[in-house]
């Protein structure tokens, strides 16, 4: 299903702190119709894409994301996702999606046991998805991470299934695209940085694309993920207009 002008909704949990960043990127850098959605509300207000932003929802004093998933709005997000709606969970948003059962696996404490904030390289594993369609398979993006619990874990059979279904969309790699232990900033199993659900409409990603989208800040690789999402929900005509406008 496509729409002419996609509407983005950024969920605000108490303790979300990248909500404004996602909003700013979508609204002011990419000029999208974007609104905040308050966690106590029980309506998604007709948005086409839901963003679960980074931060420390409810302080993350329990397991990360464990409480946020019980927010009133999450009921709506879950049914939206089950109906095929596009959901992107970034960092804490990824953790919430795992807790909510929309994505398999869990995010454990970083292997180094400390919070890590830095730019990393991630490789696009499959370009034929709603979240990566403007990228090429194998393309390496430079996007920052900032988390204490981004160490992705799932059991072997789940991982094999993710591989078989092409659900692993991003892996931590060296600049040249090679997978090494050194390139893995948090100990994630099989260097996983982002995965998508079986339906291909729900993605969880530890790196922060919104932090690498504004040209003023010097990095724009993150835009490619948002542009892919935009492309997946709008008509071809709109995308043409959009990229045309950007070029001029």
């Amino acid at each position: 299903m496509t729409v002419s002008r996609p509407k983005f909704g950024v969920i605000v949990f108490p303790g979300s702190n990248c909500d404004h960043d996602a909003y700013y990127t979508l609204k002011h850098v990419l000029h999208q119709d974007t609104r905040f959605l308050w966690h106590k509300n029980s309506s998604l207000e007709g948005v086409d894409v839901v963003i679960l932003p980074g931060g420390f929802s409810y302080g993350d004093y329990l397991r990360c994301g464990a409480i946020a998933r019980f927010s009133p709005i999450m009921k709506e997000v879950i049914s939206f996702a089950r109906a095929g709606g596009v959901v992107l969970g970034i960092c804490n948003g990824f953790q919430i999606l795992c807790e909510a059962g929309l994505l398999p696996g869990a995010l454990l404490r970083n292997e180094c046991l400390t919070f890590v904030c830095k730019f990393v390289h991630v490789r696009v594993e499959h370009a034929a998805t709603r979240f990566t369609s403007v990228c090429a398979s194998g393309e390496v993006l430079e996007i920052p991470i900032a988390h204490g619990e981004g160490n992705y874990f799932a059991d072997e059979s789940t991982l094999d299934q993710l591989e078989r279904n092409n659900q692993i969309l991003f892996r931590y790699v060296e600049q040249d695209g090679s997978i090494t232990q050194r390139a893995n900033p948090n100990g994630s199993v099989r260097n996983i940085a982002g995965i998508v659900n079986e339906g291909g409409n729900v993605m969880g990603l530890m790196p922060h694309p919104e932090r690498a989208s504004d040209p003023v800040l010097g990095h724009t690789d993150g835009q490619r993920i948002f542009l892919s999402v935009m492309k997946s929900v709008v008509s071809d005509e709109y995308i043409h207009d959009y990229t045309g406008a950007e070029r001029s």
């Binding site: 960043d21 900032a146 932090r211």
Partner: peptide
Amino acid sequence: IISQYDTMVRTNTIID
């Protein structure tokens, strides 16, 4: 030390 701090949240830091 610095990598344990979130240096980029609020997307204003000219990190380079």
